[in-house]
Simulated scan of single mutants.
Amino acid sequence: MKVLIIEDEQPAAHKLIRLLEEADKQIEVIDVLASIEQTINWLAVHPGPELIFMDIQLEDGISFEIFETCKIQTPVIFITAYDEYALKAFKVNSIDYLLKPIAPDDLKAALDKFNVLHRQQANYSRLESIISQLQPKTKERFLIKIGEHYRSVQTLSIHCFFIMERNTFIQTDTGKTYPIDYSLDKIEQLVDPGQFFRINRNFIVNFSAIQDILIYSSGRLKIILNGWTEKEDILVSRERVTEFKEWMDR
């Protein structure tokens, strides 16, 4: 069986290839594509595969845009990190999915379903509205209090969120630090995970603010952040180093 993988995260793509090889020796992965543009160009010049594994969130947008340009007859199994409850909508539309991180048993069940419904065309008529509902809502700005005044700070201008003496603060691209009435756990849910990463219990950093990354003691990494004015070192915890490297390399 010829399979096409559309996935922009290399570690996730490599893991899926390995799991497919373990699940069925007859599966041949004919290509791995990372973007909407690559996929549209590929489908224009290649015969359709027998099955497509497609991540919803690609590096250049939501994968539904592919269906607006290409007429896809091939069954699709979606790959996503979206909330499991929201994904019930996919089953209503007879579209299968795999929730990240992919478990071998879930992959086997999806392949078994494909074999039962082999070559049955999926119904994509309501997919666009479903995906739009599932897209994560990220916070565009945060309200901060400065003395007797309030000010709105754009999220992308925040270099980091951090905890100091049990309080939460932000440091902006101006180098100024302000207290904020959110926990780091809540902030982690509100910001774009492609732009911000929680490197330890006390820090969430903005990708655009990272100036340098140094190898540090005990398997950790040290982050040099643009404009960082506090004395405390910004360290990636040993437990988060592997995931942090994958995030930096996506």
Rank of each mutant, 00 (worst) to 15 (best):
K113P: 00
N115C: 15
S129Y: 03
H118N: 10
I102S: 12
L99I: 08
L111T: 00
L107N: 00
V116K: 10
P136M: 05
R126W: 06
A122H: 15
S132K: 15
N93D: 15
Y97N: 05
N93R: 12
S132R: 14
Y124D: 14
I131Y: 02
A110R: 07
S125H: 07
Q133V: 05
S125F: 04
P101T: 10
A110D: 06
P104V: 02
P101R: 06
A103P: 03
H118E: 11
I131Q: 03
A109E: 10
K139Q: 08
Q121S: 14
K100Y: 13
L143M: 14
D96K: 09
L98W: 10
A109Q: 15
K113C: 04
L107R: 00
Q135M: 01
A122R: 12
P101M: 12
R141W: 04
V116L: 10
I131N: 03
F142E: 00
A109P: 10
N93T: 11
S94C: 06
L117G: 01
R141G: 03
A103R: 13
L111H: 01
A110L: 08
E128D: 15
A122S: 12
Y97I: 05
N115G: 11
F114P: 01
Q121H: 12
L111N: 00
Y97F: 13
L143P: 11
I95K: 02
I130D: 13
S132W: 06
L107G: 01
N123K: 10
A109C: 08
H118T: 07
E128Y: 14
H118C: 07
D105A: 12
S125I: 03
R141D: 05
L99S: 04
F114E: 01
A109T: 12
K100N: 08
Q133F: 09
A110F: 05
K108I: 12
A122I: 11
L134W: 02
S132V: 04
K139D: 03
A122P: 13
T138M: 08
A103K: 15
P101C: 09
Y124Q: 15
Q120L: 08
Q121P: 06
H118M: 07
F142L: 01
P136T: 03
Q121W: 08
A103D: 11
N115D: 12
F114L: 03
K100H: 11
L107Y: 00
A103E: 15
D96T: 09
A110M: 07
T138C: 08
N115R: 15
R126L: 09
K113H: 07
I102A: 15
S132C: 10
D112K: 14
D96P: 05
F114M: 02
L98N: 09
L107S: 02
L134Q: 02
Y97L: 03
R141E: 05
L111V: 00
I102N: 14
Q120M: 13
S94F: 06
K139T: 09
I130V: 15
K100E: 13
I131T: 04
V92Q: 04
A122V: 14
H118G: 04
D112V: 12
V116S: 06
D96R: 10
S129A: 08
L99N: 06
N115W: 15
E140D: 05
K137M: 09
E128W: 09
Q135D: 00
P136I: 02
L127W: 02
R126P: 02
L99Q: 06
P101I: 09
K100W: 10
